[in-house]
Every structure is written in structure tokens, then in C-alpha cells.
Write a protein that binds this DNA or RNA. Structure first.
Lengths: 99, 99
DNA sequence: TGTCTATATGCGTATATTGCGATATGCACA
DNA sequence: TGTGCATATCGCAATATACGCATATAGACA
């Protein structure tokens, strides 16, 4: 089980992937091409990252009007990221308070 | 912010580190030496991992009776790991249901 | 102060992962 | 069936990180 959990966290440990998730979150479901454009990355890179995230069940893909759309699988990610963000914020506040 | 969040997840993305956290969780606060023995690892490896986790505020260290004890900083980790474990369990159950 | 134990750090090696370019595959449509 | 576009995969170079060994540092105590 530890391996799986670690793998899940590793999947979330790359800024580029978080950017992709953030883009889908703020601008909605997207194709590989759209994400490639949004993030200014190579198409092959985007494809590989999305594949990894699909394998971990964070995103799903479906074909709609001939477009391969990637979208959030569920709102699980929110409950995972929220406490992390809160933790980081709290620590940053604590740091600045000490100065 | 993305960088910090990714860094936090990266810190949690190593099975060995999760084992250390699990050991502290189940057997209580421990010294580097104790963790080294529990996990059968090199002492330098344990020291470095604990340092990283300390920097991320997951664990704290304090000196007690001349022993440098590492313990959980807060219960934040629980609220982060729980949904991940649940997610993985749900996916595994779904997988086996399909077979 | 000197010694002993515990912890931290520097260094080299092995491995994994990223990003890019090139290519292959898949799919819609003429 | 053949063409064109979108996505996936392969190969490679660069980078990051873990591990173990050796060594440095820190703290307790005679």
C-alpha cells in the first residue's frame, strides 16, 4: 500500500502536472492540443503527463465531437490539495511572523 | 505556490519516507538510531530523510533526556493521506469488480 | 579538555524522470 | 482507400535524487 500512496504523491509532485490540473480546474476540460498551447510545452510531454495522471485516476478522457477531452475524474483532488495548501500557508505566515 | 505544493508532495512521494512516518505513527516518536534499526537502512539515509521532512514541517525534533526525538508536527498529514488511501482503495475495488 | 556516542554532511555511483524531436498510431472525412 | 489532423510512443541527452561509505560535527560526561 505504501508503494501506491507514494506513487500517487509522486504523480502530484511535478509542478508542470499541477499546472495542467490547475488549467483544467480554472478553464475546464481540455484536449492535449489546448493544454500544449496553454502551458507552452511540447505536445509529447503533455501527452505523457496526462497519461500518467489518467492511470492514477485523477483525470479521465472522453471523446466528444471528435475531440479527446481530459477532465477531472472526481473532486478527490480537492480534498487532498486543500490541506497541503493550508499547511504551506500556515507555515509561511508563521515564518513571516517570526521576522 | 505550485512549486511549494509540488515540493510537499515530492517529500511524500518516497516509500521509505512513508515507512518512517508510519513507524513514528504506530510506535511513537523515535530517534535517528531507532528508525535506522526499525527500517534496516543506513543511518545517513535516515538522517537525510528526516531532515527533509522536518524542513517541510511534517515532523519536529526535540531533545529529551539527551535523545533527539522525532515526532509528528501535527495531524495535518492524516487529512492529506486519508483521501489518498481511500481513493486507491476505491480504485482497487473497482478494478477487482470489473474482473 | 578529551573521549564516546549520536547525528549530520560530503562525495561518488546508480537509477529514474523530464523535456524535446522524430515517428507511429488512430480517427474523421473526402 | 487515401489524406490530414490529433494523439501516443520511442530514443536521447540533461537533470535530479536515492543510497552507501567515509568523515565531520555536536552533545554528554569523566
Amino acid at each position: 500500500m505504501t508503494e501506491e500512496v507514494a506513487g500517487y504523491f509522486k504523480m502530484l509532485s511535478e509542478p508542470v502536472r499541477l499546472h495542467m490540473l490547475g488549467s483544467i480546474c480554472s478553464e475546464g476540460a481540455a484536449t492535449i492540443g489546448e493544454l500544449t498551447e496553454r502551458l507552452g510545452l511540447c505536445q509529447s510531454v503533455v501527452s505523457r503527463h496526462m497519461k500518467l495522471m489518467t492511470e492514477h485516476g485523477v483525470v479521465c478522457k472522453k471523446i466528444e465531437n471528435g475531440r479527446t477531452l481530459y477532465y477531472f475524474a472526481d473532486d478527490c483532488l480537492c480534498s487532498i490539495c486543500a490541506p497541503v495548501v493550508e499547511k504551506i500557508r500556515a507555515r509561511a505566515a508563521e515564518q513571516s511572523r517570526l521576522l
